[in-house]
């Protein structure tokens, strides 16, 4: 199904052949490579490359894939945060119907497996939309971003609701007695007070969604995990390469996410003290 439609092939490295990409990056990373080059060259003549050398050789491509994971995570986070903020405020709004609807949406998307949401996004969103006379293609990676934005939205919605609820009601009363409208109270008095409290849980969601982006490989979006598999295959699928290659992917995510988690914990502690 996907093969027939070029619009659905946005980031399909294999078609163009990974070596092209690799060589370009190899040049850029020549200096760094020099350190490992002797070992690699020594084996280049006949014997297969050592696992470490293989990882090293493919590092530029794998890192480009990782960069794509990050891109997906940024975009999903941005869209999900904006939508979640609106949904969270709707959960706190004065309209009963809207409140109920926002609550239901939040609960639904918060309690669905992310991978299932991703599948839904992939298969329910059309591959292109026509607005007026213009056809806008919706490539797989864009659909994946939307698929990941859904759980982000639901989680941000709850974060907003929880933070606003954590502001003591006397704040509302004193604003009310000064004739602030509910909207003014929310935007000028309540939200500025609790925005800080939203940051740690929000960062937590970010860390989780970053790690979840590898699920995009399941629905055919080429990202780091997909590339790792392809590299493994390109190297003949040698079993001893499995651990180093996938270990490298793990390492990338760990090195990226762990500092975020550390910072989250630190902020959490700091905001708790106040």
């Amino acid at each position: 199904m996907r093969g027939a439609l070029p619009v659905l092939l946005p980031f399909r490295a294999p078609e163009r052949g990974p070596p092209t990409l690799t060589r370009a990056h190899l040049v850029m990373l020549a200096v760094a490579l020099a350190a490992l080059a002797p070992a690699a060259l020594a084996q280049a003549s006949g014997a297969p490359l050592s696992p470490l050398a293989v990882v090293w050789k493919w590092t530029p491509l794998l890192l480009a894939g990782f960069g794509f994971n990050l891109l997906i995570s940024f975009a999903a986070m941005a869209i999900g945060t904006a939508a979640g903020f609106g949904l969270g405020l709707a959960q706190l709004g004065s309209s009963r119907v809207l409140r109920g609807l926002a609550w239901a949406l939040t609960q639904f998307f918060r309690n669905s497996p992310w991978l299932v949401l991703l599948f839904f996004a992939m298969f329910l969103i059309p591959f292109q939309v026509r607005i007026g006379g213009v056809t806008i293609p919706l490539p797989d990676w864009l659909k994946a971003i939307i698929g990941f934005a859904l759980p982000v939205m639901a989680n941000v919605s709850e974060i907003v609701r929880g933070a606003v609820r954590s502001v003591p009601t006397p704040q509302w009363e004193s604003a009310d007695s000064l004739a602030f409208t509910p909207r003014q109270t929310m935007w000028m008095i309540i939200l500025p007070q609790c925005i800080k409290r939203m940051i740690p849980p929000w960062m937590n969601v970010y860390s989780l969604i970053t790690m979840a982006t590898v699920q995009a490989s399941v629905v055919g979006v080429t990202e780091m995990l997909t590339l790792t598999g392809q590299v493994h295959a390109a190297e003949g699928g040698r079993p001893e390469l499995f651990a180093p290659l996938y270990g490298f992917a793990l390492l990338c995510f760990f090195v990226y996410c762990y500092p975020i988690d550390l910072m989250t914990a630190r902020l959490e502690r700091r905001f708790q003290v106040r």
Partner: peptide, 13 residues
């Protein structure tokens, strides 16, 4: 009508 509360309720930010 102005009102003052037991817990002051100033805007902390």
């Amino acid at each position: 009508v102005g009102m003052v509360f037991q817990q002051y309720n100033l805007f902390p930010h």
